[in-house]
């Protein structure tokens, strides 16, 4: 898949049977909708699959950051905040193709996780925790 930021070919990271697309140039991560559903399913959360639909409904975040295009459907993605205090600015495809974490945002998220691992067990936090686990060595 092509990175929505630097347009280079991303590599695929498969961890615990979940695939993530990862750009080696900018450090960004694409979390595909199907993989997201599988991950939440494997954690046995009731009502899986609803998660991405819920994230799409999150309020749009005001940001000066450039709009990204979804690497699957090519439409502009929506900026929103995932998780609480401080929260991570992410891009979400409003057609439901998946989530994009910018390289910088991911680094911040990881730094924050190291200091105070997320305790809350809601779905957005699980996504963040999972990313923290996969990209353990990144920070």
């Amino acid at each position: 898949m092509i990175c929505p930021v630097c347009k280079s070919d991303m590599i695929v990271v498969e961890y615990k049977d979940i695939e993530l697309d990862h750009c080696l140039d900018c450090g960004g991560v694409w979390f595909d909708a199907g993989e997201l559903a599988l991950m939440l399913q494997s954690l046995e959360i009731a009502g899986h699959g609803l998660c991405l639909a819920e994230i799409i409904k999150f309020p749009e975040a005001i940001s000066s950051e450039k709009k990204r295009r979804c690497p699957i459907c090519g439409h502009r993605m929506k900026k929103t905040i995932l998780g609480k205090e401080p929260g991570t600015l992410i891009d979400v495809c409003d057609r439901g193709d998946g989530l994009w974490f910018d390289g910088g945002e991911l680094a911040q998220l990881l730094k924050h996780l190291v200091k105070s691992p997320g305790k809350e067990q809601n779905e957005p936090q699980k996504i963040i925790n999972f990313l923290g686990e996969v990209f353990h060595a990144q920070e």
Binding site: M10, H136, A137, Q138
Partner: peptide, 29 residues
């Protein structure tokens, strides 16, 4: 895609256009 299995259990897949001869595992480093 080329498949590389890291000792930590993470699996990396590199696109056919991948250049460079080493890659760092993001999970274990």
């Amino acid at each position: 895609y080329r498949t590389i299995d890291c000792e930590c259990g993470t699996r990396l897949r590199l696109p056919p256009g991948f250049r460079g001869n080493r890659v760092r595992c993001p999970h274990c480093g």
